[in-house]
């Protein structure tokens, strides 16, 4: 026999590392990405823990101390109704984060899967559904959101489903485009030639390859969704008062901006640090996954 033993064939040792570990190692090298991740985690921890430690009851109104400037007692001052802005800012992200995070997952699941399936079948059904997607995308997103919420009501589950649906429309496109890169590749052909069922091809062959695109797209969409939810609250279609919410706080307190700017600054700082964190993380995440090829992994 003339063939090598496996040990002779490989003289250079290979470090065994899963793609997940690889991504994490790349991500850790980027300070911007780690800062973003830290900001996101801080916000999630704040949202989870704030009810237990905020100094004041966020719902407690006091007409004596309306629109007061920041003080030792009220770090960010008080709003028009005399409520503590700091406590309300800390708690203001709870509903937002819950709604958007669930909506992101929903949009990944339906948009991602539909996109992969459409990319795989690539026939008349694909053609038809993509035109429907195009038509839906031609409606301004805020209008579409308002339309659905106006019809369905402002309950939290309606908002969650609405966000999950509207942002999923974009994801269909992204997932389909990413899938088309792999549909003609030989490992998919090999699976088809084996006689694998379509479900197996979608879940086992395509999804793992499209997942990174879906995740990066998801984290980028998340920041848009937060803005979307804040806009909705600003317009009065979001959280039901008096529950504290950033968008709603900005809307109600902008009238006293000149008197007590902190009533607006508080929620704005909270919202913007979260969005900046998400964007920093998304960029680094895309680079760590090797999706942003023009830049290479940040070192």
């Amino acid at each position: 026999m003339t063939v090598a033993s496996p040990s002779a064939e490989r003289s250079v040792a290979v470090r065994r590392r899963s793609p997940l570990a690889e991504t994490w190692a790349n991500l850790r090298r980027s300070w911007a990405g780690m800062l973003g991740l830290a900001l996101i985690l801080i916000h999630i921890i704040l949202a989870l823990s704030s009810p237990y430690w905020v100094p004041r009851d966020p719902l407690e109104m006091n007409s004596v101390i309306r629109s007061q400037a920041p003080s030792g007692e009220h770090f960010f001052g008080t709003d028009k109704l005399g409520r503590d802005v700091f406590s309300r800012s800390m708690l203001g992200g709870r509903v937002t984060l819950l709604v958007t995070l669930i909506a992101i997952v929903i949009s990944r699941v339906w948009g991602g899967l539909l996109g992969i399936v459409l990319g795989l079948v690539n026939g008349r059904a694909d053609e038809l559904l993509m035109r429907v997607v195009d038509a839906l995308l031609s409606i301004p997103w805020l209008l579409l959101l308002l339309l659905i919420i106006a019809v369905m009501g402002t309950e939290m589950w309606v908002q969650t489903l609405t966000f999950g649906f509207t942002y999923g429309i974009l994801t269909v496109r992204v997932a389909r485009a990413a899938t088309l890169d792999f549909v003609t590749s030989e490992f998919v052909l090999a699976a088809r030639a084996r006689g694998e069922r379509r479900r197996t091809i979608v879940m086992k062959e395509l999804l793992p390859n499209v997942l990174d695109v879906l995740l990066v797209d998801g984290s980028m969409n998340w920041s848009w969704m937060l803005l979307g939810f804040a806009s909705l609250s600003f317009l009065g279609f979001g959280v039901v008062p008096p529950t504290p919410d950033w968008g709603f706080m900005i809307a109600k307190n902008r009238e006293i901006l000149a008197v007590q700017p902190w009533a607006v600054f508080g929620p704005v700082i909270m919202l913007s640090t979260l969005i900046i964190g998400i964007n920093l993380f998304s960029d680094a995440f895309a680079k760590a996954l090797g999706l942003d090829r023009s830049q290479g992994a940040p070192v």
Binding site: E186, L189, A190, A193, G195
Partner: peptide, 26 residues
Amino acid sequence: VDRRPMEVSKEIQLVFQNPDASLNPR
């Protein structure tokens, strides 16, 4: 292939030119 019985698909297997592309990298 989707209209062939599984016993038949089993008996016919394909190996491709480029092993980089024919193995799922994930």
